[in-house]
């Protein structure tokens, strides 16, 4: 039984509560639900987390921003081609800290998803992000990115306008920034499309978010020629927050409520806010140059290989 089936069972039990009447029976039922959640919703499989990361009710970037920021002004457009609605960016204030926020935005409904292109950015989305990051650097604002995308959009126009170049440019320019940068992977961290907002001093990740080189479906198709093996692929790919923390790819896990972020959004937002504030505080100690250098040192080390001296053979 996967996490979605378990969730359905919890919802079913919850829906019965109203009809029960007496407080005693209600409390008993609530306890029962809580016990079931404790029992069934801990120790999630990698595939469970994939399902949660893509959950219909999972909070989107905008909801995070609404909670995180006392106020937020959205800024549009890349000044070159158009405004890409799959990425929102702007200036906000988190507990009095003025920051630039750049976030990939999924839709809640089909209509909104069509408008947001299912959070799959075109090159102009990445170029807008870069414009706002440069702006943040000019005015010495820290940058927070919220990552939630299945990947960069693999379409005809995206290619024509240089998807590869746009991503590459972001990787290079984000490395060169001299303001504190923090990425938070809030849902799906899909491949280069996610990394293009993810080369930062600190990378935080929500407990049930995923971050990978491609979707488990894609991985199963390419390596095993069978997309139905996605759940097996999810295990093999090491895409959960716990795996990635162990590898040192991400710096910190932000805890989610039992059953996933959508079970208690406010708790999720609180934890996220706390995580961001802590990192903002930690990064304040560094000069601009130190921020750039330590960021580069961190990425310089990534890789899993061995080198031997063949003179010894």
């Amino acid at each position: 039984m996967n996490i979605l089936a378990k969730e359905r069972k919890v919802r079913e039990l919850e829906s019965k509560i109203d009809a029960l009447g007496s407080e005693e029976v209600v409390n008993k039922m609530k306890l029962e639900i809580e016990n079931y959640k404790q029992e069934a919703m801990t120790n999630l499989t990698a595939w469970d987390r994939v399902l949660l990361a893509r959950h219909q009710l999972r909070p989107t970037a905008k909801e995070f921003i609404n909670y995180l920021c006392d106020d937020f002004i959205e800024l549009h457009g890349d000044r070159l081609f158009r405004d890409d609605k799959s990425i929102i960016g702007g200036i906000g204030s988190i507990n009095g800290n003025i920051v630039t926020i750049i976030a990939q935005q999924k839709g809640k409904s089909l209509d909104e998803n069509l408008e947001r292109n299912f959070a799959m950015p075109h090159p102009e989305g990445y170029r807008k992000s870069l414009r706002l990051m440069k702006q943040a650097e000019k005015f010495r604002r820290p940058i927070i990115t919220l990552i939630d995308t299945p990947g960069a959009y693999p379409g005809l126009e995206a290619e024509e306008r240089g998807q590869g170049e746009a991503i590459a440019r972001n990787l290079l320019e984000m490395s060169n920034l001299t303001v504190p940068t923090i990425a938070v992977i809030i849902g799906e961290g899909g491949s280069g499309g996610a990394l293009a907002l993810g080369v930062t001093n600190r990378v935080l990740m929500l407990e049930n978010a995923i971050y990978s080189i491609l979707s488990p479906e894609g991985y199963a198709t390419i390596l095993w020629k069978d997309s139905t093996l996605a759940s097996k692929a999810a295990e093999a790919m090491k895409l959960t927050s716990y795996d990635l923390e162990e590898y040192g790819i991400i710096d910190k896990i932000i805890k989610e409520p039992l059953g996933g972020a959508h079970f208690n959004k406010i708790k999720t937002f609180q934890n996220t806010k706390q995580g961001i504030l802590e990192e903002l505080y930690n990064l304040r100690k560094f000069t601009g140059e130190e921020l750039r250098d330590t960021r580069m040192e961190k990425y310089r080390k990534f890789g899993f290989f061995q080198r031997f001296n063949y003179d010894n053979l």
């Binding site: 290079l172 990394l195 080189i213 390596l223 990534f302």
Partner: peptide, 22 residues
């Protein structure tokens, strides 16, 4: 990217871009 190496392959994109920068 080399799919078999998962997230480590992805990180090479950042690493090599930084090498270009330096």
């Amino acid at each position: 990217a080399r799919m078999q190496e998962g997230i480590f392959s992805l990180m090479q994109m950042a690493k090599t871009s930084q090498a270009v920068l330096k």
